[in-house]
């Protein structure tokens, strides 16, 4: 007798590992050792609410769009963001970076809330447009000194993991009423984006 086990039961140990990982990271930030560069880079994307929400939204939208967006976006997205990062490092002029980041939260949240399903290229174009702003904002803050590789590796992998978390959340569409639940989540993200954008404009 063969039994097909779901991907979920196989992914569980990995998930547990990922949940344990941050505690190691937090415990280690005070030491100035070789691993510190990676951990500071890893923690950096987790500190900004706008960045976290936008990355979650990208993952959730990918899950809502389904195949092939669900796997194309996590592969292609880091490249676009890195290109934005290069622009930030080189100091190329880009206007309204902060506003672009917050508006991305609003727009991506709205896409999920309204259950918009554009063709893959259009979805990728929208995500890429905002990814450049995110990459730019972070690229301008990258330390160019020692440990740059460790820092960047931490930064890229943390961003990717938030993205994957968004996809994981997006899997609620498999549940009964899950599609509605996901749209409600998109609503919450859009509302947060509106708040952040308003805060930016008032300030």
């Amino acid at each position: 007798m063969t039994v097909q086990y779901s991907w979920a039961s196989r992914a569980l140990p990995v998930l547990v590992l990922l949940m344990v990982l941050p505690t190691v990271a937090f415990a280690h930030t005070e030491g100035g050792a070789a691993g510190a560069g990676f951990l500071t880079g890893f923690l950096h994307p987790l500190k900004g609410l706008d960045h976290v929400l936008a990355m979650l939204a990208v993952g959730m939208w990918g899950a809502q769009l389904g195949n092939p967006a669900i796997w194309v976006l996590p592969v292609a997205f880091p490249q676009v963001m890195a290109l934005g990062g290069v622009a930030g490092i080189l100091g190329l002029p880009l206007v309204g970076v902060e506003l672009g980041v917050t508006v991305s939260v609003l727009v991506l949240g709205s896409m999920i809330a309204l259950d918009r399903r554009p063709p893959l290229w259009a979805a990728f174009l929208i995500v890429s447009f905002f990814a450049v702003f995110h990459g730019y904002a972070h690229g301008a803050e990258l330390p160019g000194k020692t440990g740059a590789v460790a820092y960047s590796a931490g930064f890229v992998s943390a961003t990717g993991l938030i993205h994957l978390t968004g996809i994981g959340i997006g899997f609620v569409v498999k549940l009964p009423h899950g599609a509605k639940l996901l749209r409600a989540g998109g609503c919450a993200i859009a509302a947060a984006g509106l708040f952040l954008a308003g805060q930016l404009l008032v300030r």
């Binding site: 796997w71 996590p74 592969v75 292609a76 997205f77 880091p78 490249q79 963001m81 890195a82 290109l83 990062g85 290069v86 490092i89 080189l90 100091g91 690229g139 990258l142 330390p143 160019g144 000194k145 740059a148 590789v149 960047s152 590796a153 930064f155 890229v156 992998s157 990717g160 994957l164």
Partner: peptide, 24 residues
């Protein structure tokens, strides 16, 4: 595997730019 490859490439792109970018 492809996602991890993409992360490595993105890291490489960023640090290459840091190498050739403005002095910080």
């Amino acid at each position: 595997v492809r996602v991890v490859g993409s992360w490595i490439a993105a890291t490489g792109l960023l640090v290459l730019a840091l190498k050739w970018g403005v002095d910080k």
